[in-house]
Design a protein around this nucleic acid. Structure first.
Lengths: 220, 220, 220, 220
DNA sequence: TATGAATGAGCTTTCATTCAT
DNA sequence: CATGAATGAAAGCTCATTCAT
């Protein structure tokens, strides 16, 4: 939650700061990120930094806000292909849309996921809210699917969420790690070969879960 | 590879240093870990530290050695239950044994996995060897299983390895993150509820992969 | 090239830093010079030092700049006595003016020449430019003298430059080393006895070179 | 003056220490030379070092002793070519013999001359004795030449010695600096081109002094 | 509101020297 | 005699943060 002074800034300046922060967190992680380097790269003064943000965590939190805004913008005109998707079809669409989003903002997502997943902050002190928000979405998605009869009500929702979360994170990491090595990440992601690999990964999860729906993930 | 001076140390002192390093890396990650704090916590002088190790990376590498030693010791009397395990049964045993090992050395594993997985070092500059060694073991396990007819030869080995690696890391993280919140981690891991959760996770992967053997992960 | 922050400093403070650096380099040479001692002697904080300069080499480079400025100032009102000097008369004037300059800034010159000549930096990695600029000036002086017919064209320019450089350095060292032992260095330099000694040294070079023009330093 | 324990050492070990010290002083100068590196390179223990020498200065002093010994050995079978050399012929022979000596022990001479000339120790606190011994030799050479009628008694002996010292140092530096860049320093020194250059340098001095003998360096 | 100089604690690393074995 | 572990001071340098302008 940056201070109002930052939000009043002209967009150009604000973007310079955000980009510098993204590069810094992507390259160094949270603990090793240097405010000195961020202000040097943004072209703002050190004094200004402390009038925009209270500390390092505050800048990082702003990146989460930026993602939220970008996501809203990104998904404004993007809807699931049809209304009769079952839960797995919907999840598959969600993952692929997420991939597109990551691909459109690779450094931003790299920065944030490095910190959240990599540095343990995700499961740690801060950001628990952030994570709960995300898993709650999945949980609600599943619960609604159960309610509407799409999914077997005996499924252990918590466990299914954990699997989906793991799967989603793994695919994200794969895209960002491998993709950053490519010349044209967008082209690489959309290539038949990459899409096929992702498809297979999703099928593994889907059939694993389908099988388990009745036999293994039933409540006990 | 710490210097000989360290290896000559009385065990008590050596353990003090290792424990301090474990705590430091577990709490701060690699980049933010402070040698100052390590020496303060070990009760050795800063000069001594640099007679034991060449630098921060050297201490960390020693933790990997310690794990290797502990693993050798741990698995000395622990063998797969029976000789006729199929690959998935073997992987299940491997994961469970790994869980037991992690549970016996939670801080050590937390420190190392935080750095390797979390800080991008694993997929980055250093430690690529370390990772390849681990994935190669899985790949060989699968290949041998295919050769011996246990597993459908149409399986895409690379993809299956990636899934197993993801699964294995996810379970490790789950155990370490959730387990560290418990009063008695050992009791928690061995509880029926936790074991059941892990079983289910493994079944999801197993049935996902089995199904895919013929239909999805076939070579194209 | 110190940072702008240093150049913005009030003169008093800037001089304190420069003087401290001069003393440090004069007393310890480049490698053994301690930034800790410089900041202690200047009364600035260690943090400030690194806001003024990037590193030790940067401070030292600034001393070269200071010399350049001082020289400009010093030679503003000092011109060769007459227009019809032959090359040796000009070189003699140059050396004597240089002596006066050294005498006016003895510690500064001592610091710089100790590092440049003494520590091998002059002939080594850094500062090669600095040296070439100086020898090139001598070379051009000679070449122009040859072109204008003042000096025998058969003179080996490179060798003559080497001699003049050696001579010039030797006289500088003599003045600085012997002069620093005197109570009043200015008085000592201007004394008839010292001036006579310098004159004789210069005559030795001059007659040596004149003689060699035709017989010894001819191109072969 | 190393302790007796060092002198009792087997030659092999003694040489290892001397060579390590030579390399260290040649590469880093006196102030920046590291005893740590010397002991590491010699293969002796740090404790032993302090049983051989009292401190850094002590090792360096030993190098001067080594030079003295080597010189004695070197000049045992080397005598001036004939008995009727005038002073300048003798000086010329001396310089050339010195060059041969330097060429035979380039690193040793480089180490010592870097420290003595370069680091100001020569003219500074220590080593004044060393320098006086060397200039006294020249002074006696000149005085004896005057006494025997070879040289004009009106020569200012002090000044002539200063010139010869400067010349000698300059030639030494030239040989060591340029020579170390060559593949085969011995071959380079003995090449016609190098010898000619040295000859010319010496002629400049010689004719300069001869001219001055009667006219400029006469006592006043 | 913007600035950027100032700061001292902290960083990793190397140092010369001692001393118990 | 030989050893090498131990040590604290000091090295060069970066840090997050404050505050007067």
């Amino acid at each position: 939650m940056p201070k109002q002074t930052f939000l009043n800034l002209p967009e150009e300046k604000r973007l310079a700061v955000v980009n510098a922060a993204v590069d810094e967190f992507a390259d160094y992680g949270f603990e090793a990120a240097s405010i000195n380097r961020i202000v040097a790269a943004s072209g703002i003064s050190k004094g200004s930094f402390y009038q925009y943000f209270t500390d390092k965590l505050d800048v990082f939190n702003h990146l989460l806000d930026v993602i939220a805004q970008e996501k809203t913008e990104f998904f404004k005109d993007r809807h699931p292909p049809g209304a009769n998707l079952d839960t797995f079809q919907y999840f598959r669409w969600m993952i692929k849309a997420g991939m597109e989003f990551n691909t459109a903002n690779p450094r931003l997502m790299q920065a944030v996921s490095r910190v959240l997943l990599g540095e343990g902050l995700y499961y740690g002190r801060n950001f628990e809210d952030q994570r709960l928000k995300s898993t709650n979405a999945m949980r609600m998605m599943l619960q609604q699917a159960i309610k509407s009869g799409e999914v077997d009500p005996s499924v252990d929702v918590d466990l299914a969420v954990m699997i989906m979360e793991t799967w989603s994170n793994a695919i994200s990491s794969y895209i960002l790690n491998e993709g950053m090595k490519q010349k044209d990440i967008m082209k690489w992601v959309r290539s038949a070969r990459t899409q096929e690999k992702i498809d297979k990964l999703l099928y593994v999860m889907e059939y694993g879960l389908r099988k388990t729906e009745s036999e293994f993930i039933s409540q006990t």
